[in-house]
């Protein structure tokens, strides 16, 4: 727990699976267990039905990309997995355990899930290093110097070590987003949820963030990624899901979804993307 795992891969049942610390999520996950499973998930905000029956399964070490127009429910889906939004109907299972069941300790669930937001959401009153060590020290109970050592090692790995004493406002958008990714990684999550993490960035800063994500994928991190970067999704995803008006209309390997989409809406969506020169 003291040393960051900088050589071996991320994720997987041994590292990322539920750790003994989580009271509701006890025990290591059985081999072959799905990391995430959504069953008929519904979510409404007032009269607005954002998710209308989502079924999705994410195997360990796989990268799933969610594509679709703005408002199709991608972000809401991620926020539901993270329990930031309670679902109205259906179940969400993490490593086989129903986290939407009553009485589940949401804080215990969340410490196994890393989420990165579109707008970075770094804590502006804390240095980069403190942003990263807050979770480990205050949630996992890691000693401060241990957490700082681990945080520093992660920053070194992602080329941010000279920024560790700066405040987030001093960093470029790309650097801030990389710090946000490192902050999530510092919790040693079993899965990462990335919510349009490059959408708020200047175009020339996108690649440095995508590079980090590729690195995570290569290291075996399980990821659920909502993105508008179609080229990136095609390269990195094991499976692509096309969301439209709160349902997954089409799902499959990227080659199939991008080159031979079956559904009319998917074809229409991809044509607009191609016309805009973004694929």
């Amino acid at each position: 727990m003291s040393e960051p795992d900088v050589t071996s891969g991320f994720g997987g049942p041994q590292l990322g699976g539920p750790q003994p610390g989580g009271p509701q999520l006890g025990g290591p996950a059985p081999a072959g267990q799905e990391a995430v499973r959504l069953e008929d998930v519904h979510k409404s905000f007032g009269d607005l039905e954002v998710l209308r029956g989502i079924n999705l399964s994410v195997a360990p070490h796989k990268v799933i990309c969610l594509i679709g127009a703005s408002g199709s429910g991608k972000s809401t889906l991620l926020r539901c997995v993270n329990l930031l939004e309670p679902v109205n109907r259906g179940r969400i299972l993490l490593w086989g355990q129903d986290v939407t069941a009553p009485g589940v300790d949401e804080n215990a669930v969340r410490r196994h899930i890393g989420i990165v937001f579109q707008a970075f959401n770094l804590f502006p009153h804390m240095t980069v290093l403190r942003n990263i060590t807050l979770g480990p020290t205050r949630v996992l109970g890691v000693a401060r110097d241990e957490a700082e050592e681990a945080g520093h090692a992660l920053l070194v790995r992602f080329g941010l070590s000279e920024k560790q004493d700066d405040y987030p406002d001093r960093l470029s958008g790309g650097q801030q987003q990389r710090v946000a990714i490192v902050r999530a990684l510092a919790m040693k999550p079993g899965i990462m949820l990335l919510d349009e993490v490059t959408s708020a960035l200047d175009p020339e800063l996108v690649s440095e963030v995508l590079g980090v994500i590729r690195e995570l994928a290569a290291a075996g991190m399980t990821m659920l990624i909502a993105t508008h970067e179609m080229g990136f999704a095609r390269d990195i995803a094991d499976r692509v899901c096309f969301l439209d008006e709160g349902v997954i209309l089409e799902e499959g390997p990227p080659r199939q979804v991008f080159t031979a989409p079956v559904n009319g809406r998917t074809q229409q969506f991809l044509r607009r993307i191609v016309d805009a020169g973004r694929l």
């Binding site: 410490r111 890393g114 937001f117 707008a119 959401n121 770094l122 807050l134 979770g135 919790m187």
Partner: peptide
């Protein structure tokens, strides 16, 4: 509110 979301998503309780 996004600050709260970021904090809660790290597993911090409402009080923390």
């Amino acid at each position: 509110q996004s600050q709260v979301a970021a904090a809660r998503s790290l597993g911090l309780s409402q009080w923390k």
